[in-house]
Amino acid sequence: FKTFYGVLREAAKWLTSQGVTHVAMEATGIYSAPVLHALVEHGDFAQVLVCNAAHVKNVPGRKTDYADAEWLAHLLECGLVRGSFIPPAEIKAVRDVIRYRTKLVQARTSELQRLGNVLQDAGIKMDSVASSITTKSCRSMIESLIDGERRPTVLAELARGKMRTKMADLSRALEGRFGEHHALMCRLHLDHIDHLDEMIVRLDVQIEAMMTPFRAQRDLLTTIPGIGAKAAAAILSEIGQDPAAFFPTAAHLSSWAGLCPGNHESAGKRSSGKPRKGNRQIHPVMVECAWSATRHEGYLKSLFHRHVMKFGGYRSAAAKKKAIVAVAHTMLVVVWHVLATGTAFDDLGADYFTTRLDPERETRRLVSKLEALGHTVTLAPAA
């Protein structure tokens, strides 16, 4: 059978006529999608599994398409193969739109960086004075430069708000070698940024409309500190509105997302606890939400502080990176429980870890540390 969709429909009907009840196929990215849709929509099968190719590898030396098909059928017959997570059609549609919005946001950031590079090449250092070249003041100055204005003092007068307190530095920053070539490049970059902004707004409206059936689940997720409406929509588009239907436990979900510690042990020695590679979309979303959660007083911020101190302290960038992944892992576990039980998040409180300490044991620990530093400790009860 060829891979044209009309032919794939005939393949699904032929398999059904042959008495096939279960089908397994390797995941090959977008190329496996038409085959899956044809099998599901036009065949009468009890189960259609899309399998991770890394999980169904045959022994070396037997790599042919026919041998792979036989091996996959044998694994399915023995019940040794597990399908990948395939979201429902309505979730898949939301996922496509949100992922495309993410790409547009990244493209907009890249375009802003290119605009900044053009200004730097022209000797315009407004980003050294302004907080960002995306402000209204900077936009007005760039537009004036494109229109032919080159006098630094005149350009500086376009500053608004707090930037007017930096007029002297701004005048020096706007003195450069801005030419026609720079004007052309800036115009193209600004037009592209404006176009991307319009597309992002259109997608935001579309996402809001498509999230209407899942508004209850999204509202539940927004009760978790650090997760806003857009992040909640992104999480739902990746794991579905009922993750417990595919992921039996929160640990399964964390492993699939690549946020739980990895296991690599041999001969009784554990060589690495680095997280495994998981879903490349939900991982950055959860890490971003974790950073946001550390700015809110509560259990998650205390957990972050606890892990940072365990991994080396706030002076270590590696310690903070490890700690934020641990917080993201905890938040994903919370997400699973919130969606599985349908209950809002109940914060354990910022003092969760301190209230669980044994006062006498903690006192002995602190006294021993002071004595190890050469101090003599005398304890007296508080008034």
Rank of each mutant, 00 (worst) to 15 (best):
A344N: 03
L80M: 12
T341Y: 00
A251E: 12
P275E: 00
R361E: 08
F1L: 15
D169F: 08
Y352L: 14
K63W: 02
Q106E: 15
Q47T: 13
M331F: 09
H252C: 04
S144T: 11
H192M: 15
H37C: 07
L203P: 07
V205K: 15
C260A: 13
I324L: 04
R276V: 11
A33K: 12
C260K: 14
R82T: 09
F214K: 08
A89F: 05
V40I: 12
S292Y: 02
L36G: 03
A244S: 13
G262C: 08
E111P: 10
S272L: 03
K322A: 01
T330I: 15
D219N: 13
L300C: 04
R160F: 03
T153K: 12
A89G: 08
P284M: 08
S266C: 11
R361I: 12
A231R: 02
A319D: 06
G43P: 08
D127C: 13
E208R: 15
A46Q: 14
F353R: 09
L155W: 02
A231L: 08
A234S: 15
H189I: 12
A317C: 11
R62S: 09
T376C: 08
V201L: 13
Y299E: 03
K320V: 00
N52Q: 01
V154Q: 02
H329E: 05
L348Y: 10
D147V: 14
T378C: 12
I200E: 07
L39H: 02
G258Q: 04
L49C: 14
K57R: 11
A216M: 05
L39M: 06
K162H: 12
S254C: 15
V334H: 00
M286D: 00
L80E: 06
T21H: 14
A53S: 10
S144H: 14
I124T: 00
E265Q: 15
F247A: 14
A12Q: 09
V129H: 00
N117P: 03
A24P: 10
S292K: 07
P152I: 06
A183K: 13
R164E: 03
S316H: 12
D44C: 10
D197F: 09
A183R: 04
R9W: 04
R295M: 02
G312M: 06
R95Q: 10
I124K: 05
T165H: 10
E90M: 08
E77K: 10
G374R: 06
D358Y: 04
T354Q: 09
T330Y: 04
V334Y: 01
P381D: 13
A67V: 14
R365M: 01
H189K: 11
R172Y: 08
D358W: 06
V327F: 00
M210C: 06
R215V: 12
S110A: 15
L72Q: 05
L188S: 10
G19V: 12
D121F: 13
A267P: 00
M141R: 07
F353T: 08
A159Y: 14
T249N: 07
A251T: 04
G61A: 15
F304Y: 15
T330L: 07
L15S: 03
T153I: 09
S255D: 13
A122W: 05
R101V: 09
